[in-house]
């Protein structure tokens, strides 16, 4: 029996934790008990902003990595965070997973850092909830005090928002006291943190997601495993996108339903307004390409491939439906 220590910065509750637990259970089952994951939750071994060097140095064998903490080192994975037209969690994960798994430049870049890609999650699509006046158009963003994250936050800032920097856990109190008017978020997280209690409305942006969240592994450890063990890890990692897609879609639908029940107005941003946001994100794509090329990655080519992959999996979803819906019915 080989025990793999996994470092996870988050708690053992919620959709991401359930998917990680599923991954651990599947690894044990598919290897017939030959591989076992020992998950250290809550950043007991290392916090999210120390994950890359901790994995490279072998503090844990596998671990959860969030790309936004490593704009330079994890430039390749950061492609999944870009504010492109990418609203579907499953499509986004499938596209990210295929890019990370098949692109040779990416694999080489990771190998230099003593890392191997295993599998991916996503935060799912970025939305925004407010207390008081709602965001019904891009023009409504102007003058609002907004807690934003990543390139999405920068686009809100460009649209005239007054950006306030605080953690998602402080957003509840921030909305409650009026320190912020709006908070960028993901439906299941808004629900888990009970933010609906202090929100009057929630605008579905149908825009993009923060998808650079996934499992990586120490390369020395990966190389020391047998071919069968490696196969178990990579195939289970690939299958995680389907499993997490199922979980997160259900969790988000539930979250929206419960927000409606609590009297939060759910608003769909019109297509024309959404196009403005996607347009506003363009300049941040250019900045990403620069960073990627500085670390030796073919930035423009990767963006092209990524867009093609999003199109491919959108097409697949539209013709066949989600994989869990096919097998479920």
């Amino acid at each position: 029996e080989t025990v793999l220590i996994h470092g996870e910065a988050g708690p053992n509750r919620g959709a991401r934790a359930n998917a990680l637990q599923w991954f651990a259970d599947q690894v044990a089952e598919r290897s017939s008990g030959d591989l076992r994951m020992d998950i250290q939750w809550g950043g007991a071994l290392f916090k999210a902003n120390a994950a890359v060097q901790s994995l490279a140095d072998g503090v844990a064998d596998t671990g959860s990595v969030i790309a936004v903490y490593y704009p330079q080192e994890m430039a390749a994975y950061g492609i999944a965070d870009l504010p492109v037209n990418n609203p579907d969690a499953w499509v986004g994960m499938r596209a990210t997973d295929e890019l990370m798994r098949t692109n040779e430049a990416v694999a080489e870049n990771l190998a230099e850092k003593n890392l191997v890609y295993i599998g991916t999650w996503t935060t799912s699509q970025v939305n925004i909830g407010c207390k008081g006046d709602a965001i019904r158009s891009v023009a409504d963003i102007e003058g609002k005090k907004v807690r934003g994250v990543g390139a999405y936050g920068k686009v809100f800032g460009e649209a005239g928002a007054n950006m306030v920097n605080m953690s998602i856990y402080d957003a509840y109190q921030g909305l409650d006291t009026g320190l912020i008017d709006c908070s960028q978020g993901y439906s299941y997280a808004v629900s888990a943190l009970k933010q609906a209690e202090v929100m009057d409305n929630y605008t579905m942006l149908n825009w993009g997601q923060v998808g650079g969240v996934g499992i990586f592994m120490n390369k020395d450890m990966f190389d020391s495993l047998t071919a069968e063990q490696q196969e178990v890890l990579t195939t289970t990692g690939a299958d995680m996108a389907d499993e997490f897609g199922r979980m997160i879609t259900i969790a988000n639908d539930k979250a929206i339903a419960s927000m409606k029940e609590q009297g939060v107005e759910i608003i769909e941003l019109p297509d024309a307004e959404r196009a403005k946001l996607v347009e506003g994100g363009q300049k941040f794509l250019a900045a990403w390409v620069e960073t990627a090329e500085a670390s030796g990655l073919p930035g423009d080519k990767m963006l092209e491939d990524y867009a093609a992959l999003i199109a491919k999996y959108t097409q697949e979803r539209d013709t066949n439906g989600y994989p869990w819906a096919q097998s479920g019915n």
């Binding site: 060097q53 936004v68 903490y69 490593y70 704009p71 330079q72 080192e73 990543g150 920068k154 500085a294 670390s295």
Partner: peptide, 16 residues
């Protein structure tokens, strides 16, 4: 070791 690593790679914090 960490200092040399972030120096060589030119690592930075995501932000403005």
């Amino acid at each position: 070791r960490e200092f040399l690593s972030v120096w060589e790679k030119g690592s930075f914090f995501y932000g403005d």
